[in-house]
Amino acid sequence: MTKSGKSTNPYYQGPRSDHFNGTRFFNPDGIPPGTLRDLLRWKWSGQDKVSPWPKAYPSRFAGARPAERVEGTGLRVTMIGHASMLIQTAGLNILTDPVFSERVSPFSFLGPKRHNPPGIVFDDLPPIDLILVTHNHYDHLDLATLKKLQARHRAPVITPLGNDTIIRRSVPDADITATDWGDATPFRDGITIHTEPCHHWSARGMRDRRMALWAAFVIETPAGKIYHIGDTGFHDGINYRAAAAKHGGFRLGILPIGAYEPRWFMKGQHQNPDEAVQGMKLAGIQHAIGHHWGTFQLTNEAVEDPLAALRAAGVEPEQFRALRPGEAMDVPWG
């Protein structure tokens, strides 16, 4: 806030809450994101070894051509890459955090670059009915992709508070619903999108930290409930327990398993695979898909470290799958 009492938040103006102080959002009783000093220590101290990725990490499933629809209680998820997924169920096609750009950065020539192409070619996408954007980091909110989707599909977007402002600046005619933690947004008969807490943060630049909200989504469908989290720290399992208590368990969880090293810097904002497995159990998730790995190198772990860590966590491979771009999973019922 300024001395005049006017908020300096360019994205959102609204009442204070248990996770908004009038200017910035925050994680109640949570760990704040690292400071610039922490970032410089990570990048330049030499204490934290970076495992190099191969220049290309291709997927044998690339170029998948998904079905136009999956009807009834069928549930199919196809990995596009990183946190971009195509969810098909009850005749509905949903995209999560769609990113088809070559880099996830404010610059077209600098920043994390793809190690594999999108698993579905953009022109091969089926008709898209709904887009979910969890938060505004560049690897989740890609304005260039949202522009293309608007031109081709004109699908409505649901996103947490403040992100609507960012999207509308580039896609002014987009149909956007901005939601807060705890909101339930009816979409179609039998389909409701619940916006739920996760432990993360937001920023598009140096001056807008935590000025737009971040969230998980629960997709309530006739085929069961899907718990989709774009990014989260484990946060002692608090949000997983709360989700189970509120929603009674899930047919599917889509959980981040990458970008977690070094732990001293990443622990508060990015869970590791072992914590993802713990979260799966705490939330009553029957089957899980791991994402946020294998496409963009954002942190220090090697490209396949998340796979090894999942195996070490002792979960059955068919119960918790880490999909490659273009790979699809038909989720069992029960």
Rank of each mutant, 00 (worst) to 15 (best):
T299L: 03
T8M: 09
N163C: 15
G190P: 08
R76P: 03
A288W: 06
H228N: 09
Y12Q: 02
R65M: 04
I219C: 06
T179P: 03
Q271H: 10
D236H: 10
F109S: 15
T8L: 14
Y260I: 09
P332M: 13
T145Y: 08
P58L: 12
S4F: 05
M1E: 13
I238T: 14
G253C: 09
F61M: 06
T179M: 07
A90N: 14
E301L: 07
V157H: 07
G72R: 08
L298N: 04
P54A: 10
W333E: 14
R207G: 00
S101Q: 12
V157C: 07
G162R: 04
Y138W: 15
L110W: 15
P33R: 12
T8N: 12
S7I: 00
I254G: 00
R210A: 11
F25T: 08
P33Q: 09
K3A: 14
H153N: 10
G314F: 10
N116C: 14
I219R: 07
I167D: 04
K43N: 14
V218H: 06
Q278G: 00
I254R: 00
T179F: 01
A144K: 10
A309D: 15
Y11C: 07
V133S: 03
D142Q: 02
G72V: 10
G326T: 03
R60G: 14
M206E: 08
Q278Y: 00
D183W: 02
I219K: 06
T89Y: 06
A313I: 11
D29E: 14
T177Y: 08
G314D: 11
K49T: 11
A144Y: 04
W42R: 15
L298A: 05
H19S: 13
K6P: 02
Q271D: 12
R321P: 13
A322W: 00
I289S: 03
R41W: 12
L213N: 06
V277E: 03
D48V: 05
D123K: 15
F109A: 13
